[in-house]
């Protein structure tokens, strides 16, 4: 292992997917590990995909718009926001905000479950094969698989929506909702 940063081409197809998509986990979550702190939910209960000025203006985006984000592995429809201080070929969003409905003992209508989203659907479930043919998992279904410079996407405007897609039905509750405990 080299201690120096390395560069390798993104996995899989990149033709027709001109934009890098990144995620980072909100650093305040590291200070409230293991809990869904109500205060943090109030500060950041939903996430946007931040678009640079070139994509925002080129695509004719307006506040309140959603975008269809497509990668070789899948596509999602998510809320977007303009961020001027962003590289023109990069989009990013907070990881670990989006939740499956009824997960984390939240209400099925919680903003995390309706408008919040993860990039998991855009990321291959498995890493490329190792020498022995084994493919390691590349998915974090609990807090969201992180995307770094190994994910390339394309963006198209879809106009105003009221929920992110894909949207799945609520999952069975293992931990009862707050009000029923």
């Amino acid at each position: 292992m080299s201690p120096l940063p390395v560069w390798y081409p993104p996995y899989g197809e990149t033709e027709g997917y001109p934009v890098h998509a990144l995620t980072q986990r909100p650093m305040d979550m590291y200070h409230s590990w293991g809990s869904q702190n109500a205060w943090l939910r109030q500060i950041r209960g939903k996430n946007f995909l931040y678009l640079p000025t070139k994509i925002w203006e080129g695509g004719g985006f307006a506040p309140g718009d959603y975008a269809r984000v497509t990668s070789p592995s899948g596509e999602i429809v998510v809320p977007v926001a303009h961020m001027a201080a962003l590289n023109e070929n990069t989009v990013w969003t907070w990881n670990a905000i989006g939740k499956r409905k009824a997960a984390w003992a939240l209400d099925a209508a919680a903003p995390e479950a309706v408008e919040g989203f993860l990039l998991n659907h855009l990321i291959s479930e498995l890493l490329p094969a190792k020498g022995d043919g084994h493919r390691y998992s590349n998915s974090d279904p609990v807090t969201g698989q992180a995307a770094w410079f190994d994910l390339k996407v394309r963006i198209a405007r879809v106009g105003p929506r009221d929920h992110a897609e894909p949207a799945f039905p609520p999952m069975p509750r293992v931990v009862p909702q707050g009000s029923q405990r």
Binding site: R41, Q42, I43, R44, G45, K46, F48, A81, A84, P111
Partner: peptide, 10 residues
């Protein structure tokens, strides 16, 4: 304003 200080109401 880049974005509101928080996404929920207060």
């Amino acid at each position: 304003v880049f974005e509101l200080p928080h996404t929920g109401g207060n």
